[in-house]
Protein backbone atom coordinates (compact mmCIF):
# COMPACT_ATOMS: atom_id res chain seq x y z
CA UNK A 1 0.00 0.00 0.00
CA UNK A 2 0.96 3.64 -0.44
CA UNK A 3 1.15 6.23 2.34
CA UNK A 4 1.82 9.96 2.30
CA UNK A 5 2.83 12.10 5.22
CA UNK A 6 4.93 15.13 6.08
CA UNK A 7 8.47 14.14 6.97
CA UNK A 8 10.61 16.84 8.57
CA UNK A 9 8.52 19.47 6.81
CA UNK A 10 8.41 17.85 3.38
CA UNK A 11 5.49 15.93 1.86
CA UNK A 12 6.59 12.36 1.08
CA UNK A 13 5.13 9.08 -0.21
CA UNK A 14 6.21 5.52 0.37
CA UNK A 15 5.14 2.08 -0.74
CA UNK A 16 4.87 -0.07 2.39
CA UNK A 17 3.59 -3.34 3.75
CA UNK A 18 0.73 -2.60 6.17
CA UNK A 19 2.43 -4.13 9.17
CA UNK A 20 5.76 -2.41 8.68
CA UNK A 21 6.45 -0.06 11.54
CA UNK A 22 7.07 3.64 11.10
CA UNK A 23 10.59 2.95 12.38
CA UNK A 24 11.27 0.47 9.55
CA UNK A 25 9.98 2.87 6.94
CA UNK A 26 12.01 5.80 8.27
CA UNK A 27 15.21 3.79 8.33
CA UNK A 28 14.75 1.62 5.26
CA UNK A 29 12.63 3.58 2.79
CA UNK A 30 13.90 7.03 3.71
CA UNK A 31 17.37 6.06 4.92
CA UNK A 32 16.95 8.27 7.97
CA UNK A 33 19.10 6.14 10.20
CA UNK A 34 19.39 8.70 12.98
CA UNK A 35 16.33 7.08 14.55
CA UNK A 36 17.64 3.93 16.25
CA UNK A 37 16.15 0.54 16.94
CA UNK A 38 16.99 -0.75 20.40
CA UNK A 39 14.42 -3.10 21.89
CA UNK A 40 11.56 -3.02 19.33
CA UNK A 41 9.16 -3.25 22.28
CA UNK A 42 8.54 0.31 23.36
CA UNK A 43 10.86 0.11 26.37
CA UNK A 44 14.07 1.86 25.41
CA UNK A 45 12.99 5.00 23.53
CA UNK A 46 15.87 4.86 21.00
CA UNK A 47 13.28 5.05 18.21
CA UNK A 48 11.48 8.14 19.58
CA UNK A 49 10.13 10.55 16.95
CA UNK A 50 7.46 13.24 17.05
CA UNK A 51 4.11 12.60 15.39
CA UNK A 52 1.95 15.72 15.25
CA UNK A 53 4.18 17.20 17.95
CA UNK A 54 3.89 14.28 20.40
CA UNK A 55 6.76 11.97 21.28
CA UNK A 56 5.99 8.37 20.29
CA UNK A 57 8.02 5.20 19.95
CA UNK A 58 8.14 4.56 16.21
CA UNK A 59 8.73 0.83 16.75
CA UNK A 60 5.15 0.49 18.05
CA UNK A 61 3.48 2.60 15.41
CA UNK A 62 2.40 0.93 12.20
CA UNK A 63 3.49 2.92 9.16
CA UNK A 64 -0.06 3.31 7.78
CA UNK A 65 -0.95 5.14 11.02
CA UNK A 66 1.35 7.96 9.92
CA UNK A 67 -0.87 8.73 6.92
CA UNK A 68 -1.34 12.52 6.73
CA UNK A 69 0.65 13.14 9.92
CA UNK A 70 3.60 15.42 10.54
CA UNK A 71 6.56 13.28 11.49
CA UNK A 72 9.73 14.84 12.89
CA UNK A 73 12.92 12.81 13.29
CA UNK A 74 16.31 13.78 14.68
CA UNK A 75 17.36 14.74 11.14
CA UNK A 76 14.57 17.33 11.15
CA UNK A 77 16.09 19.22 14.09
CA UNK A 78 19.33 20.13 12.38
CA UNK A 79 18.03 21.30 9.04
CA UNK A 80 20.66 23.18 7.05
CA UNK A 81 23.47 21.41 8.90
CA UNK A 82 23.21 23.56 12.04
CA UNK A 83 22.83 21.65 15.26
CA UNK A 84 19.69 22.40 17.24
CA UNK A 85 20.40 24.08 20.62
CA UNK A 86 19.36 20.84 22.37
CA UNK A 87 21.95 18.92 20.38
CA UNK A 88 24.60 21.53 21.14
CA UNK A 89 23.76 21.31 24.83
CA UNK A 90 24.10 17.50 24.74
CA UNK A 91 27.56 17.91 23.20
CA UNK A 92 28.66 20.61 25.64
CA UNK A 93 27.45 18.73 28.72
CA UNK A 94 29.02 15.45 27.63
CA UNK A 95 25.58 13.80 27.55
CA UNK A 96 26.66 11.60 24.66
CA UNK A 97 28.87 8.56 25.11
CA UNK A 98 28.15 5.68 22.72
CA UNK A 99 25.37 7.83 21.32
CA UNK A 100 22.85 5.10 20.68
CA UNK A 101 20.22 6.58 22.96
CA UNK A 102 20.98 10.17 21.99
CA UNK A 103 18.60 10.76 19.07
CA UNK A 104 15.69 9.42 21.12
CA UNK A 105 16.67 11.39 24.22
CA UNK A 106 17.02 14.56 22.16
CA UNK A 107 13.58 14.03 20.59
CA UNK A 108 11.95 13.50 24.00
CA UNK A 109 13.69 16.64 25.27
CA UNK A 110 12.53 18.54 22.20
CA UNK A 111 8.91 17.46 22.80
CA UNK A 112 9.23 18.51 26.44
CA UNK A 113 10.73 21.93 25.74
CA UNK A 114 8.16 22.64 23.02
CA UNK A 115 5.38 22.23 25.57
CA UNK A 116 7.19 23.42 28.66
CA UNK A 117 10.14 25.76 27.94
CA UNK A 118 11.17 26.00 31.63
CA UNK A 119 10.85 22.49 33.09
CA UNK A 120 11.99 21.62 36.59
CA UNK A 121 14.39 18.74 37.17
CA UNK A 122 11.52 16.40 38.07
CA UNK A 123 9.71 17.26 34.87
CA UNK A 124 12.84 16.62 32.84
CA UNK A 125 13.35 13.24 34.50
CA UNK A 126 9.71 12.31 33.86
CA UNK A 127 9.99 13.35 30.21
CA UNK A 128 13.05 11.17 29.56
CA UNK A 129 11.96 8.24 31.74
CA UNK A 130 11.21 6.34 28.55
CA UNK A 131 14.71 6.82 27.14
CA UNK A 132 17.12 4.30 28.53
CA UNK A 133 20.82 5.13 28.53
CA UNK A 134 23.43 2.52 29.43
CA UNK A 135 26.38 4.93 29.43
CA UNK A 136 25.87 8.36 30.93
CA UNK A 137 24.02 7.66 34.15
CA UNK A 138 21.42 10.27 33.08
CA UNK A 139 22.89 13.08 35.17
CA UNK A 140 24.52 14.69 32.15
CA UNK A 141 21.43 14.28 30.02
CA UNK A 142 19.38 16.10 32.65
CA UNK A 143 22.03 18.85 32.79
CA UNK A 144 21.99 19.13 28.99
CA UNK A 145 18.24 19.60 28.93
CA UNK A 146 18.50 22.25 31.64
CA UNK A 147 21.20 24.03 29.67
CA UNK A 148 19.20 23.81 26.43
CA UNK A 149 16.15 25.24 28.21
CA UNK A 150 18.19 28.19 29.46
CA UNK A 151 19.81 28.86 26.11
CA UNK A 152 16.62 28.53 24.13
CA UNK A 153 14.79 30.77 26.57
CA UNK A 154 17.50 33.39 26.45
CA UNK A 155 19.23 33.21 23.07
CA UNK A 156 22.52 35.08 23.06
Amino acid sequence: MEISFILNGNPVNAGIAPTQTLLDVLRESFRLTGTKEGCSEGECGACTVLVNGKAVVSCLMLAPQAEGCEVTTIEGLSLGGELHPIQTAFVKEGAVQCGYCTPGAVMSSYALLSENPRPGEGEIRAAIAGNLCRCTGYQKIVKAVQRAAEEMDDPV
Binding site: G45, A55, V57, A111, A129, G130, N131
Partner: peptide
Protein backbone atom coordinates in the same frame (compact mmCIF):
# COMPACT_ATOMS: atom_id res chain seq x y z
CA UNK B 1 2.01 3.76 33.26
CA UNK B 2 4.96 3.36 30.91
CA UNK B 3 6.67 6.51 29.67
CA UNK B 4 5.60 9.75 28.01
CA UNK B 5 5.78 7.99 24.64
CA UNK B 6 3.63 5.07 25.80
CA UNK B 7 1.11 7.43 27.40
CA UNK B 8 0.93 9.47 24.19
CA UNK B 9 -0.04 6.31 22.31
Amino acid sequence: IGSVQIRNM
